[in-house]
Design a protein around this nucleic acid. Sequence first.
RNA 1: GGCGCCGUACCCAAGUGGCUAAGGGAGCAGUCUGCAAAACUGCGAUGCGGCGGUUCGAACCCGCCCGGCGCCUCCA
Length: 486
Amino acid sequence: MLRVYNTLSGSKDLFEPMVPGKVRMYVCGVTVYDYCHIGHARSALVFDVLRRYLEYSGFAVEFAKNFTDVDDKIIKRANEQGVSCERVTTTYIQAYYEDMEKLGVRRATLEPRATEHIADIVALVDTLLGKGMAYRVEGDVYFQVDRYPVYGRLSKRKMDDLQAGARVDVDERKRHPMDFALWKGSKPGEPSWDSPWGPGRPGWHIECSAMAMRHLGETFDIHGGGMDLIFPHHENEIAQSCGATGKEFARYWVHNGFVQINQEKMSKSLGNFFTIREIFDKSEWPETVTGEMLRYFLLSTHYRSPLDFSDQSVAEAKNALNGFYDLFERLKESAPAQGAVDQQMREANTRARQAFIAAMDDDLNTPNAVAALQKLRGEANKALDAGLSAEMRHVVREEFRSLGAVLGLLQPDRWQFKSQGSQESHGASGAPAKRLSDEEIAGKIAARLVAKQSRNYKLADQLRAELSSHGIIIEDRPDGTSRWKR
RNA sequence: GGCGCCGUACCCAAGUGGCUAAGGGAGCAGUCUGCAAAACUGCGAUGCGGCGGUUCGAACCCGCCCGGCGCCUCCA
């Protein structure tokens, strides 16, 4: 049984969906005015894994992740570039899809956009006005926080504290400093939609409430996002949603920690961020490998802890993954029908699966889940030394495949160790020194084999050195043949 | 000023009251190998930022201190 840390309750709660067997979750996606950075990647990945694990656990998951496609920053970007807002948003939505695909982040089942839900938003604002929880000021509409008495229950803040700490000049037209815009009257040239309050556009928070309710119902199971969204974004979503419906909004609030650079928060404003595509472009590895390295790295820390991004950490992830893929190669090699330690291996498999599930059940403890896989890797290697049947080798591979899939890792055929096509996926930075074709590699390996057989080790070593200079590593098998990898 | 988080070996990182403090990476030594690589075996924190306290017992609870960070403003 899964337990998740619920920001609302402040504790790890047993997860039970409203409707047995069905989970409805909403995650705040991105504002599409720029490329995604590694922090966006972490957030997307955390909820991708949560979704995968819920599905693995047998739930049907309805997963909505929005695009915020109307916003001050989008307007600003459009003006800077002299293009329409639509042009900006379609560009970065496309980029988002490309980046996420490289990371193996599955698409949500629903991907609503704010601009497609203006009618829902207007209706919601209207409801709040009708209930006296919002008020109009010229062409704007504000939510009145003191009409929602438990305001602050998510972020555990008191209204008095918030006022004391206010660092921003308060709009004099607001009745309370914490009141926030539900609807903004548009200035000329800005995107706008008709409304009972004149032409305007939605405030930031209202879109998520409207879209979540439209697609998942007034009350749903999980709402997620980065920790920085707890206040004010999610706090305001709760206020306006619960204010409008009188019902609970989301039952479990899940928030991921930040990616840091040198112990500091990575953010646009600090300028210390790395975009996802930048990382892929700079990587010396094929795209599938880079994607998995990043994924492994991002999942090797618990999702609520801060995570320091560095080249070294990502390189360590590569080394750790190598061990798995080396094992998968060994598991593919021919084997007898009977294995000396098949039974022990079967038991090790079961233990690993149980440990993996226990780790994931404990608030998505992916570091422990990975540790369970690492332990199984060691046991499988030992079993191979002792003698494992062809059938058990297959079983073990499938075990890695099914558990790995929960994390989006370790699909045994993903890394091409041998003679698969050498598609060019290398970065833009610097043309890679002439890359050997598979035919050339195979030729040199064959030549080396001949040299070895005639005990001409000098030539054999020379051939290996040549390959090595191209980043090709040869591993001799016990039967005299060789396999290679980049 | 308010609210909150973190500090575990060379690096990353679990563990949050009780078996020998997981796991990975790096390193060193050994087995195997023509040599390598891979794999396997062994080594590595008498200690979990510091000092007190609670307890039969604490990395885990409490207090203080040191160091670092986050939110309170757009932000994953």
